[in-house]
Design a protein around this nucleic acid. Structure first.
Length: 436
RNA sequence: GGCCGCGUAGCUCAGCUGGUAGAGCAGGUGACUGUUAAUCACCGGGUCACAGGUUCGAGUCCUGUCGCGGUCGCCA
């Protein structure tokens, strides 16, 4: 036998409850007092609510409880829901009772004023409570859900690939840790190679997980721990791969535009700009891109990877993301398939987001020829033993296949219009930031 | 790692060609019956990152150290 329970009411529920008396719990974001009338702004994660307390209409205990409320104290309040056009949700609460749950010490670090980003990140556990951060996290959540919906509806299988791996993947920095008698284990930089094995088992797969890069990158586009989504599709070539990428990214953007207008407004994001993100996205051959860049005054020469400045120059003429395809072999990873039309290049693409947000996707058709792949592994000086199972995929029923990796935080940053990627994950990990 | 910049009150910052520490916000006390980062009055609050140097005198100039940020490279 369990006792009768009343459902918990949240601030977001209140517009439908005008005229009724409700009890809510939450935290203080702000208090104001004019002597005998006082105002407390409560937040509960679903919204904010102004609670109006008139001294002559509440008990002495409730009035004293109000007096003792400090910023971020948790409290329970009872009152009548009243329509009030001046309020954000269109309602306020005429308080009849108020009790403190947990008082908040007077030195709560985040005040209703401007703070520096570094200070805010030191207090990330509190910063997350602010309306802007709540909006970013809700949009991130919307994007994550949309990713799962997109692939589920298309018959993809989600595969969770290992985070602890033997050295495999790309050449960039690895985080190492001792692993029993097996020597070092490394935190995964990509699930792709496992994704390729899974694609041969299930046809269409995607991974969704954390990845780790130990480079000492100090830019607004880098984290040491970030979340990556890596689809891999059997029998897709590089063209089908780009079709999937543009369908995917435009789906994510339109989903946020449709379902999260309030959050975009909170962030001051221009929705019209996002609405322009429709397929097809321009596909620019690397060789043509270099020519364009040289015409624009860049010093790049054929064979070099494109720098951040070059990418910005290319993107400035477009309102959608663009693809840069078929880079020189030397600039790209060993597993990318040689371009049969120009063996100096590989069948790959980078998707560059507009407005200077940079690369959000890197993709390629994979090398499916056993001997060519083995040759590339030798060329890169990689340990062949570590890749034996990966080579086996080409030995036992090799298959044309392609895939890509989407950086979640970069995508969230672009869609939200945030200046820095570090606001786009709850607890960012960077070179100089391991806590909170 | 290269280059550029920053470090002054709990927070955001000002502090000129060197002259002995400031504002706003936050906090405390009081006033106010409709405020939206309310307003008004009063109050407390500092090893000017650290260590040297120049100088009669250094927050300010010089050197070094530490910490941090931006940018580039690496990539998503």
């Amino acid at each position: 036998m369990s006792p009768a329970r009343t459902p918990v009411i949240r601030i977001a529920d209140l517009p439908g409850l005008v005229g009724s008396t409700v009890t809510l719990s939450g935290w203080v974001t702000h208090t104001r007092s004019s002597g005998k009338v006082a105002f407390v702004v409560m937040r509960d994660g679903t919204g904010t609510l102004q609670c109006v307390i008139v001294k002559t209409q509440v008990s002495a205990e409730a009035w004293e409880a109000f007096q003792a409320l400090t910023l971020e104290s948790s409290f329970t309040v009872t009152g009548e829901v009243k329509a009030d056009a001046r309020q954000v949700g269109g309602v306020e609460l005429g308080v009849t009772g108020l009790a403190i749950i947990g008082p908040s010490a007077l030195d709560y670090p985040i005040q209703p004023k401007e703070h520096g980003v570094d200070f805010l990140l030191d207090n990330r556990h509190f910063w997350l409570r602010s309306p802007r951060q709540v909006a970013i996290m809700r949009i991130r959540n919307e994007i994550e859900q949309a990713i799962h919906d997109f692939f589920y509806e298309r018959g993809f299988l989600r595969v969770d690939t290992p985070i602890l791996t033997a050295a495999i993947g790309e050449r960039s920095g690895l985080f190492a840790t001792e692993y029993f008698d097996e020597g070092n284990a490394y935190l995964a930089q990509t699930g792709q190679l496992y994704g390729e094995a899974a694609a041969a088992a299930f046809g269409k797969i995607y991974t969704f997980g954390p990845t780790f890069r130990a480079e000492k990158s100090k830019t607004r586009r880098h984290l040491t721990e970030f979340w990556m989504i890596e689809p891999e599709v059997a029998f897709n070539d590089t063209h089908a791969n780009m079709d999937l990428q543009e369908d995917f990214v435009s789906f994510l953007v339109q989903r946020v535009v449709e379902r999260r207008p309030a959050e975009l407004k909170e962030l001051g994001r221009d929705v019209e700009t996002l609405k322009k993100v429709k397929t097809p996205f321009p596909r620019i051959d690397y060789t043509d891109a270099v020519a364009t860049l040289q015409r624009k005054g860049s010093a790049v020469t054929w064979g070099e990877d494109l720098g951040a400045e070059d990418e910005a120059l290319l993107v400035e003429d477009y309102e959608t993301p663009i693809f840069i395809c078929n880079y020189p072999k030397e600039a790209k990873a060993f597993y990318m398939k040689e371009n049969p039309d120009d063996p100096r290049t590989v069948l790959c693409d980078d998707m560059l987001a507009p407005e200077g947000y940079g690369e959000i996707i890197g993709g390629s058709q994979r090398e499916d020829d056993h001997d060519k792949l083995l040759h590339r592994i030798h060329e890169e000086g990689l340990p062949v033993e570590a890749y034996s199972w990966y080579l086996d995929l080409r030995k036992y029923g090799t298959f044309v296949h392609a895939g890509f990796g989407l950086g979640l935080e970069r995508t969230v940053a672009w869609i939200c219009g945030t200046p820095h990627i570090r606001e786009c994950i709850a607890f960012p990990r960077m070179m100089h930031r391991l806590r909170p």
